[in-house]
Design a binder for these strands. Sequence first.
DNA 1: CAGTTTTTTCAATCGCTATTGAAGTGATTG
DNA 2: CAATCACTTCAATAGCGATTGAAAAAACTG
Lengths: 200, 200
Amino acid sequence: MHAPTIPTGAAAPTADDPRERARLARERACLLVSDTLAELMGFWNFKPSMGRVWAVLYLSREPLDADAIAERTGLSAGSVSMTLAELQRWGVIRRVPAPRARRRHYEAETDIVELVTRVLRERELRLVEQAVDRFEEAMRILDEEAGSSVPDEMIHARFLHTRVESLARLARAGRGVVQQLVRAGLFDLGAIRDALPRRR
Amino acid sequence: MHAPTIPTGAAAPTADDPRERARLARERACLLVSDTLAELMGFWNFKPSMGRVWAVLYLSREPLDADAIAERTGLSAGSVSMTLAELQRWGVIRRVPAPRARRRHYEAETDIVELVTRVLRERELRLVEQAVDRFEEAMRILDEEAGSSVPDEMIHARFLHTRVESLARLARAGRGVVQQLVRAGLFDLGAIRDALPRRR
DNA sequence: CAGTTTTTTCAATCGCTATTGAAGTGATTG
DNA sequence: CAATCACTTCAATAGCGATTGAAAAAACTG
């Protein structure tokens, strides 16, 4: 875990060494990016470890094994294993067949648009659809009492019905937004995809 | 906290009593709604107590005071106080001027669209804007090394640059979506599509 | 197939955030 | 203006989800 001795006796690994300068710059940039990713993913209710592991893979030129990931993220071996499994379940990283290696190697899925679309489709959409269903169920329950013979019960039921109706309307709008995003991600967004990294 | 004695000696408060039936139905409906709201708000990284308190107010016919809220949510007085303050800061509930009442009364803001829009504008937009800034900052750092005299350092810097570029593009697209949502008020879904690519 | 290395699993632990409760501050009233 | 009632604050605590670490399982290797 030490910088190898520089062959050319002249250049020492100081701030003036171009290699060292470059390495530090890259390190700063990567840190900035993975912090940002961690924050974004954390906001999206993913575990911090998922964000960190994905960032490490996404910013690596070659596939990494569990050990390298543990080292770079500071996570335990067990945590890395679980996190890798979870990331694979989400399809955001993939195992790279490494014929003559003993350890398993992984790389990040780079089609980020597809990746975000997937999360939207499998999580947000489900969530919002469930909300719509529940609100509609609540309205059905209230409907049964809306024709009550007792005046005040009826009024109360109707009051609640209008409130829940507003929520349902909003939830349906939200569902529409997510559906639109998912579809755009799959079709219209091809334009963005073209501009994104390498896809052949 | 007890059902008052029924004046008409005939009807006892059983499941056959229309009033009781109606009350139970409303209770079920409200529970369904507040559970759903709690889940949704929890997902949006709001504290559970905020969801519960807002739900109680939103589903009440008249403004409530802190005591009534504490009772119905099961929260402590201190917690209710803090939660009310926070909800007011978000503009999702408001204090109702109650001239001759000793206690302060609150009601829920009912323009839910405005309410969601506000959260999008003040939280999501800020988050995504910050992400864009950070990615662009990372790219600037990498640019300084992209012209490095050491070939491999240059290649590495360029590799990282393209990766970060993709993230930045996605973040900008996300920013566009949120901006659009804030402007269009959630319902004009067609507009979202226009916000996405902005690239041929 | 026995030995060795890598990965997975899961109970225990850790750390963090939400909540409490009691003390402190402020408001209202007779 | 003193007494009471309402509200706020914040240090301590509880509860929960993420992480660890050690042990079991699986995958290689010679």
